[in-house]
Computed example of a mutant assay.
Amino acid sequence: MGAASAIILVLITLFLPPLGVYAIAGCGADLFINICFTLLGYFPGHIHAFYLEYVYFDRQEQAKAGQLNPTPAPCIYSDRIQRGGHGYGTIVQPTM
């Protein structure tokens, strides 16, 4: 995901936090939790959504560098976010 995609995702999350969570986590526990937080108040939904996006992009950068942290991030139930969007296969090391 490039910088333009990240900016678009942040803009989507500003207006509709569950839609931003759905874009990175899919339909699952994290989406349900975010919908509940958003119904409780617009601000808690934003905090949760931006936390998920931060972990997603941080793990994605770690995976690109070949240093993916095996410890799961707290309060995140989506494997896709935990892995930074990468699959179960091996991570190709960047060539220099």
Rank of each mutant, 00 (worst) to 15 (best):
F37L: 08
L19G: 04
Y54H: 07
K64N: 11
G41E: 06
Y56V: 07
D30G: 08
G89F: 12
D30A: 06
Y42W: 15
N69P: 09
A3E: 13
P70S: 14
A25M: 04
P18T: 01
Q67H: 09
A6H: 01
Y42L: 14
A49F: 02
Q82H: 11
P18V: 03
A65V: 15
F57M: 10
V21D: 03
A63L: 10
A25G: 04
Q67Y: 06
T95S: 13
A63S: 10
P70H: 11
I33D: 03
G66L: 14
K64M: 13
Q67R: 11
M96D: 09
T13Q: 00
F37Y: 05
G2F: 07
C36Q: 07
P72A: 09
I12T: 02
L14Y: 01
N34E: 05
E61D: 13
L9M: 09
A73Q: 06
D30N: 06
S5M: 11
S78C: 06
I12W: 00
F37W: 03
L40M: 14
L52N: 07
G20V: 00
I91S: 07
D30C: 09
E53P: 01
F37T: 00
H46T: 08
C75Q: 08
A65R: 14
P74N: 12
F57V: 05
F15I: 12
D79K: 12
C75G: 07
V55D: 06
S78L: 03
A29F: 08
Y56A: 01
T90Y: 11
V10K: 03
I33Q: 08
A73S: 13
F43W: 13
P70M: 11
G2Q: 11
L68S: 09
G2R: 11
Y77I: 05
G85T: 12
R83Y: 07
P72S: 12
G84I: 02
L68H: 11
G87R: 09
T71E: 10
Y54R: 04
F15A: 00
Q93C: 11
V21Q: 00
V21S: 05
Q62Y: 07
R80Y: 13
I35A: 06
A29H: 10
P72Q: 10
P44K: 03
Q82G: 08
A3R: 12
Q93P: 07
C36R: 04
G20S: 04
N34Q: 01
A3Q: 13
G28A: 02
G41I: 06
S5H: 13
L11D: 02
A29G: 08
G45W: 02
P17E: 05
Q67V: 04
F57I: 03
I91D: 04
C27L: 14
H86I: 12
C27S: 14
Q82L: 06
L31C: 05
